[in-house]
């Protein structure tokens, strides 16, 4: 009661003062315009590259006969986990197909794959640079920390600003969100390589390329594979959110279902996402375990 009265008496003490306004949005728009004018060609090129990759992956996935995909998953599940896992995984895939979501699943998968590929192309070299230079590491650490503390849909804003709506910003946002684990674990993996091993390699007259490719990367591979697994899972979680900026796929189905309060449709699409997540996680972890170095 007392607080209510107080606020009645002193309204301007509790409401944010109106004269203190700062219209950041204007500057952001100006900045984006500036970027567009000065780096328009660059973003155009990036956009085209992402689109090219996306379209090819999508085409490939949609071209694959459904039964072939099921068989491949069966075999991979069996090889990297167990026979039962293989059978369960393939049945789960068939289930998604029966919901009528096969193509949507492939759209989603295409974005995930494209993002993971781009993450590896950039993430592994960045991780290597971090491992080699403490300076780069000191620079990247806070950036990565920052990236990981941000709520995922915040990434949609810069993506949209730079690339508009559609697949390209979805891939961009997904990549930016999913890239930290592979960078971190590449860095960690290389730094963890025993010093004596590296010195042994150097003592036999290895150049730095030999040391990197014959000793450090193979030794760091288990860590890198773990990073790839994490990156994949993060990409999958992001791809659902990326549907908000117009990426076709299971995520968009969930979004539409929520907007229209169609519980059944949302459930089916959601289940589809969970199924992909389980399959990708199990299989990529199985692959990662294969790379464990004995001893």
């Amino acid at each position: 009661m007392a607080a209510g009265q107080l606020s009645l008496q002193l309204p301007y003490m509790n409401n944010f003062p109106e004269f203190l306004t700062f219209n950041l949005g204007v500057y952001v728009e100006k900045f984006v315009k500036w970027l567009d004018i000065n780096f328009g060609d660059f973003f155009e090129a990036v956009s085209n590259a992402i689109l090219w990759l996306m379209i090819h992956i999508e085409d490939l996935l949609l071209w694959l006969p459904w039964w072939l995909v099921v068989i491949v998953v069966l075999i991979m599940g069996w090889r990297f986990s167990s026979v039962i896992a293989g059978i369960v995984f393939s049945l789960m895939l068939v289930l998604v197909g029966t919901f009528g979501y096969w193509d949507y699943m492939m759209y989603t998968l295409a974005i995930v794959l494209a993002s993971v590929i781009i993450s590896l192309i950039f993430g592994i070299p960045i991780g290597i640079l971090m491992a080699y230079s403490s300076y780069v590491q000191a620079l990247m650490r806070p950036v990565l920390d920052f990236m990981q503390t941000m709520p995922s849909f915040v990434y949609l804003i810069p993506a949209m600003l730079l690339f508009g709506l559609g697949k390209v910003p979805a891939v961009f946002a997904t990549t930016v969100y999913a890239i930290p684990p592979v960078i971190r674990l590449t860095d960690l993996g290389i730094r963890q390589v025993s010093k004596e091993m590296v010195e042994a390699a150097i003592s036999f007259g290895s150049g730095s390329w030999d040391v990197l490719t014959k000793v450090q990367l193979p030794q760091a591979l288990p860590a890198i594979m773990a990073g790839i697994n994490q990156t994949t899972m993060m990409a999958l979680s992001m791809v659902v959110i990326a549907s908000m900026i117009g990426a076709k796929g299971l995520g968009m189905e969930v979004l539409i279902a929520i907007n229209r309060i169609e519980i059944g449709r949302g459930f089916e699409a959601g289940l589809g996402i969970v199924i992909i997540a389980i399959i990708m996680d199990r299989i990529s972890q199985g692959i990662a375990n294969r790379f464990k170095i004995p001893g």
Partner: peptide, 21 residues
Amino acid sequence: LKKFRQEKVAMVFQHFGLLSH
């Protein structure tokens, strides 16, 4: 130096320094 290490000297390490992979 690379040539020297490749041809003239070789080192044996206390903890072997073998490549475990």
